[in-house]
Measured scan of single mutants.
Amino acid sequence: MATADDFKLIRDIHSTGGRRQVFGSREQKPFEDLVDLGWLKRSSVDSRATHYQITERGTSAAL
């Protein structure tokens, strides 16, 4: 179930172009929650960072 923080984060991601790069596993937790909701997808993972991209469902949630 989505929380107020989830909606705040997806709106922030949407307003800044729909993509986010995250460093460190602790910082990934809120983004992984949005992946579980179907609002974000992991577009790539490298040794230092994970890249996320907003989905259509995420765009709808952000509006």
Rank of each mutant, 00 (worst) to 15 (best):
M1R: 12
M1D: 10
M1C: 15
M1A: 11
M1N: 11
A2T: 05
A2P: 15
A2G: 11
T3P: 03
T3Y: 05
T3G: 06
T3H: 07
A4I: 11
A4M: 12
D5Y: 08
D5F: 08
D5R: 09
D5W: 07
D6A: 09
D6I: 05
D6H: 12
D6C: 08
K8R: 13
K8F: 09
K8N: 09
K8L: 10
K8Y: 08
K8E: 10
L9N: 04
L9W: 03
L9V: 03
L9P: 01
L9F: 03
I10S: 00
I10R: 01
I10A: 02
R11Y: 11
R11M: 11
R11C: 12
R11H: 08
R11G: 05
R11I: 12
R11L: 12
D12F: 10
D12G: 05
D12I: 10
D12N: 08
D12E: 14
D12T: 07
I13A: 00
I13R: 00
I13Q: 00
H14N: 06
H14Y: 14
H14I: 06
H14C: 11
H14A: 10
H14W: 13
H14T: 03
S15T: 10
S15M: 13
T16F: 05
T16R: 09
G17A: 05
G17W: 03
G17H: 05
G18Y: 02
G18I: 02
G18L: 02
G18T: 02
G18A: 02
R19D: 07
R19V: 14
R19A: 11
R19G: 09
R19E: 13
R19W: 14
R19Y: 14
R20T: 09
R20P: 04
R20C: 14
R20G: 04
R20K: 08
Q21A: 13
Q21C: 15
Q21M: 13
V22E: 03
V22G: 04
F23I: 15
F23P: 12
F23E: 14
F23T: 14
G24R: 09
G24T: 07
G24Q: 08
G24K: 09
G24N: 13
G24H: 14
S25E: 15
S25Q: 12
S25M: 08
S25H: 11
R26A: 15
R26D: 15
R26G: 14
R26H: 15
E27G: 10
E27D: 13
Q28V: 08
Q28F: 06
K29C: 06
K29A: 09
K29T: 06
K29N: 05
K29P: 04
K29W: 05
P30T: 05
F31P: 01
F31Y: 15
F31E: 02
F31N: 01
F31W: 04
F31A: 02
F31M: 05
E32I: 06
E32C: 06
E32T: 06
E32K: 08
E32Y: 04
E32W: 05
E32M: 10
D33N: 14
D33P: 05
D33T: 14
L34D: 00
L34R: 00
V35T: 04
V35G: 01
V35L: 05
V35P: 00
V35I: 07
V35Q: 02
D36M: 13
D36E: 13
D36Y: 11
D36G: 11
L37D: 01
L37M: 07
L37P: 00
L37Y: 05
G38D: 04
G38M: 04
G38C: 05
G38N: 04
G38H: 04
W39E: 01
W39G: 00
W39A: 01
W39N: 00
W39I: 00
L40F: 00
L40G: 00
K41R: 12
K41F: 14
R42E: 04
S43G: 10
S44R: 13
S44L: 13
S44K: 13
S44V: 12
V45I: 11
V45W: 10
D46Q: 07
D46T: 13
S47I: 10
R48T: 14
R48Q: 13
R48E: 15
R48C: 14
A49D: 06
A49Y: 12
A49S: 15
A49N: 08
A49T: 13
T50P: 05
H51M: 15
H51E: 15
H51A: 10
H51R: 08
H51D: 12
H51I: 15
H51V: 15
Y52R: 01
Y52P: 01
Y52S: 01
Y52T: 01
Q53K: 07
Q53Y: 11
Q53L: 10
Q53F: 09
Q53P: 01
I54S: 02
I54F: 01
T55A: 02
T55F: 00
E56W: 08
E56P: 12
E56T: 09
E56Q: 10
R57L: 15
R57Y: 10
R57V: 11
G58D: 01
G58M: 00
G58E: 01
T59M: 12
T59A: 08
T59H: 08
T59K: 11
T59G: 03
S60K: 14
S60L: 15
S60C: 14
S60Y: 13
S60G: 09
S60R: 13
A61W: 04
A61G: 02
A61S: 04
A62M: 03
A62T: 03
A62R: 02
A62W: 02
A62G: 03
L63S: 06
L63A: 06
L63N: 07
L63W: 05
L63V: 08
